[in-house]
Nucleic acid binder design. Sequence first.
DNA 1: GTTGAAGGTGAACGTACCTTCATCTTAGCC
DNA 2: GGCTAAGATGAAGGTACGTTCACCTTCAAC
Lengths: 196, 196
Amino acid sequence: MAVRADAQRNRDRILAAARDLVAEAGVDATMEDIARQAGVAVGTLYRHFPAKEDLLAAVVDDSTDQLAELTEAALAEVERGAAVGPVVTGLFRTVASRYADDRALKAAAGRLGPGADLGAHLDAELAVAGPESVVRRAMEALTTLLERSVTAGELRADVTLDDVVMMLDGVPGREVPAAMRERYVDIVIAGLTART
Amino acid sequence: MAVRADAQRNRDRILAAARDLVAEAGVDATMEDIARQAGVAVGTLYRHFPAKEDLLAAVVDDSTDQLAELTEAALAEVERGAAVGPVVTGLFRTVASRYADDRALKAAAGRLGPGADLGAHLDAELAVAGPESVVRRAMEALTTLLERSVTAGELRADVTLDDVVMMLDGVPGREVPAAMRERYVDIVIAGLTART
DNA sequence: GTTGAAGGTGAACGTACCTTCATCTTAGCC
DNA sequence: GGCTAAGATGAAGGTACGTTCACCTTCAAC
């Protein structure tokens, strides 16, 4: 018996609750609120995660995974013959729109950012040492996608991964109406597109 | 005797200290730290400002004023015959670079944003009801400047005040190297520039 | 120089967190 | 069913804030 069934169930509930609340409130989500939403006592959170930081790390890891999947899906589309331009634009739009509903995702994107030199990034506390693997996965897919875009002449030749991550980081959150957020994306894409 | 001399002196010291610390730490600057740096006791802060929020408001008002001055100066240059494009670009660069050193300035720019409907903006707590006058000043100067730019064909015809404020809001802070920040501005300006 | 009020002080209070731990509960093997 | 270790509980501890207030200090008018 490695882990008891109820323990696993509680762990899942806690993560789900944390995802929910962190999406809304970011690092300000409290342990007590998460515990309440998960239907357990605070002590239980600490049995599964030594400190709040570790729980946040797990949530952000999760979001990083989502990010990797979205990017890999986009890459697969291109591999299947889709035009690079629209795919990249679509990916950008999708990620940006999810930002509004998930602050953890934004933090996740930040992790891809300007290298390890930016350990403390975006709301500082969310900087996580977490599994590099998932970060690397997202980074690699995005890098490949960018190379294709540049080759296809869909983006300025000098666009880097850092550029894209930085611009994504600037996407406004919930406080800005969706229409404005789309406008942000439009302007950024225009800025990243090769002038002819 | 309206205000005692020492009272005025302390008020100034408090504001100066608050400017310093808020520039660095934003809303997280503590009252005690501000008091220490100002060389007074906490109680004195509360004599001059009923609550922390009021002190923050005063600081942000100050920054809004700076913003207005920068914009008005730019407008004056144009009025004096300078080319609109470079002036606007320069203003954008200046403001963006100051963001890195002053979080209150960023908050101030946020106030010009998507109307009153966004009362709670940027770090929420910094939303201030403050003197509308100074906000209006900055808004009017920037609006005029944008109109000139569009007329001169230097910016896309559909660029609005909200657009510019939103893009300014996306400028990365201290955590991002200056070179990257400049790159952000480049990309945004490219995105806002009329395609011919 | 006296005096009254404006101004200043900082310990103490209230609150909201994260975290711990002695104690109780329960899953799952025999 | 009994047993025991894994798991859960939640009150209590610790910390870091913002804010208050009873008490002192100092300016400046006379």
